[in-house]
């Protein structure tokens, strides 16, 4: 089973993101489960969402404590949330940031890091507003690129099925982000990918 944990803020679309990822994997013949953890659901408040992917039906109905990968929809969350909590060694932390993966190396020594400016990508495709860009579909492109757990084609097909509006803009944003994702490996950092 592959387990993905999303960290976002209310309004950024973590709930839709976990569902798009599930739908994309389902298209590739996988069994899936996706759910948001509903806390105090307010715009800006930290939220968590989960996607589980497996070859057989998923029966465990509980949250994810040891994710294979983590997706962070907002860099500012790193200050207040321990996003790497329980992350399996070698798992990716996919971060929406303008920074390079190396900039997070010290902070998360046991993780692989992927970065993408999902905010910039979302805004360039007219998704959401400047104050509140909808970054969920962009960051899924980055997750697909970094982790390889699902193809970008499936992500785009799922976006067209699941997102409530701007389906094409969202699909294009995910591809754009996919093509602009940076990982340790891309930077040829000899200590990367540990």
């Amino acid at each position: 089973m592959i387990e993905i944990r999303f960290h976002g803020r209310g309004g950024q679309g973590a709930q839709v993101a976990c569902k798009v990822l599930a739908d994309a994997s389902f298209r590739e013949g996988k069994e899936v489960q996706a759910f948001p953890f509903f806390g105090v659901e307010r715009r800006g408040a930290p939220v968590t969402a989960y996607t589980k992917i497996d070859d057989r039906p998923i029966r465990v109905k509980s949250q994810i404590y040891e994710p294979d990968h983590v997706v962070v929809l907002d860099e500012s969350l790193l200050k207040s949330v321990d996003v790497a909590n329980g992350l399996k060694d070698g798992g990716f932390i996919v971060i929406n940031t303008v920074k390079d993966p190396q900039d997070f190396r010290q902070r998360y020594p046991n993780a692989r890091i992927a970065t993408v400016d999902a905010t910039g990508v979302a805004m360039s495709h007219g998704l959401g507003s400047k104050i509140s860009p909808i970054v969920n579909t962009s960051i899924l492109g980055a997750l697909a690129k970094a982790s390889g757990i699902v193809t970008i084609d499936s992500i785009q097909a799922a976006i067209r099925e699941v997102t409530p509006r701007n389906k094409e803009e969202n699909a294009r944003a995910s591809l754009d982000a996919y093509n602009n994702t940076r990982t340790w490996e891309d930077t040829n950092d000899p200590s990367g990918g540990n």
């Binding site: 709930q15 599930a22 739908d23 489960q33 996706a34 948001p36 109905k61």
Partner: peptide, 8 residues
């Protein structure tokens, strides 16, 4: 939530 808002 475990069913109402969980996609499967």
């Amino acid at each position: 939530f475990y069913l109402s808002h969980t996609s499967e």
